[in-house]
C-alpha cells in the first residue's frame, strides 16, 4: 500500500501533471491556430474584440443568471467551482509538497476556510448530480463523463477532508491516502480528454461564435458540401 501511495505521489503524479499541463497547452495552441485559420475565412475582419471580451466576462458572472428560472443551478455551479479551483491549489498541505518538490511555494488558505470550501464542493457536486438525474431534459443530454466526473471529484475532496481530520476518519489512513492520491491523479490525467478542458477553451467560445456569423457568402453551402450533407435538412 505504501509503495502504491509513493508511486501515486511520485512518477504517476508527475505523469498526470505533465499530461494535464501539456494537454491543456495543446488545446490552447490548437485553439489559437484554429482561430487564425478561421479568421482567414471570415469576410468582415473588423471584430469588436473589446466587446467580445466583455461579453465573455459577463457570461461568467453568476449574478446575471440569478433571476433566471433555474437560479439554483447557477448557485450550485458557482459554489462547486470556487472550491474546486481554490482548495487543490491553495491547501497548505499541497503547497508544502510543491515547496519540497519545486523549491518554491505560495500563500495558503487558512485551514477552516479550506475545510468549508471542500465541504461545499462535495455537497454541491452531489446536488448537481441529483439535479441532473431529476430532470428529463438534463438526463437526455448527459453523457457518461457527466455522470462520472462529479462523484470522482467528490471522492477526491472527501478523502482529502478526511486526511486533514484524521480524528473523524473512520477508514484506515493508508487506504484514504491511496484513494485521495490515485483519484487526484486520475482527475489530472483525464483533464485534457474530458469536459474539464473547458477551462482553456471557454475564453475562445464567444469569439468563435461571433466569427461564425461572418463567414464569406457561400461558406454555408461549402460547409454542407464538405460535410457531405448536400440536399439534407440542416
Amino acid at each position: 500500500m505504501d509503495a502504491l501511495i509513493e508511486f501515486g505521489r511520485g512518477p504517476l503524479f508527475r505523469f498526470a501533471v505533465a499530461i494535464a499541463l501539456l494537454g491543456i497547452s495543446r488545446h490552447a495552441i490548437l485553439s489559437v491556430i484554429g482561430f487564425i485559420r478561421l479568421r482567414a475565412r471570415v469576410g468582415d475582419k473588423r471584430l469588436a474584440y473589446g466587446a467580445i471580451a466583455l461579453n465573455t466576462l459577463r457570461r461568467l458572472n453568476p449574478l446575471k443568471y440569478l433571476v433566471s428560472s433555474r437560479w439554483y443551478y447557477t448557485v450550485l455551479s458557482v459554489a462547486f467551482h470556487v472550491g474546486l479551483i481554490l482548495v487543490p491549489i491553495f491547501y497548505l498541505g499541497h503547497i508544502r509538497l510543491w515547496r519540497s518538490g519545486l523549491g518554491f511555494g505560495w500563500p495558503a488558505l487558512p485551514g477552516p476556510v479550506a475545510d468549508v470550501l471542500s465541504l461545499i464542493t462535495i455537497v454541491s457536486a452531489m446536488l448537481l448530480l441529483a439535479a441532473r438525474a431529476w430532470w428529463k431534459e438534463s438526463r437526455a443530454i448527459s453523457k457518461a463523463q457527466d455522470w462520472l466526473l462529479p462523484p470522482l471529484i467528490a471522492i477526491a475532496f472527501l478523502s482529502g477532508y478526511l486526511l486533514a481530520h484524521p480524528a473523524q476518519n473512520p477508514f484506515d489512513f493508508s487506504i484514504t491516502m491511496f484513494v485521495h492520491v490515485w483519484v487526484g491523479d486520475l482527475l489530472l490525467l483525464i483533464t485534457p480528454f474530458t469536459k474539464i478542458v473547458h477551462c482553456t477553451l471557454l475564453p475562445f467560445s464567444q469569439l468563435v461564435a461571433e466569427m461564425a456569423w461572418r463567414m464569406v457568402p457561400g461558406a454555408g453551402r461549402d460547409a454542407v458540401k464538405t460535410l457531405g450533407k448536400e440536399g439534407q435538412a440542416i
Binding site: 490548437l30 485553439s31 491556430i33 484554429g34 482561430f35 485559420r37 478561421l38 475565412r41 463523463q145 480528454f193 474530458t194 469536459k195 474539464i196 478542458v197 473547458h198 477553451l201 471557454l202 475562445f204 467560445s205 469569439l207 468563435v208 461564435a209 466569427m211 461564425a212 461558406a219 461549402d222 460547409a223 458540401k225 464538405t226 460535410l227
Partner: peptide
C-alpha cells in the same frame, strides 16, 4: 479540407474555432 465549420469540441462540448481533424 477546404472549409471547416466552427464546431463543438467533441470532448469538452465547448464551441471551438476549427474542429481538430487530420494529423496534427
Amino acid at each position: 479540407f477546404r472549409y471547416q465549420l466552427p464546431g463543438f469540441d467533441p470532448r469538452s462540448g465547448v464551441i471551438n474555432a476549427d474542429p481538430y481533424t487530420g494529423g496534427f
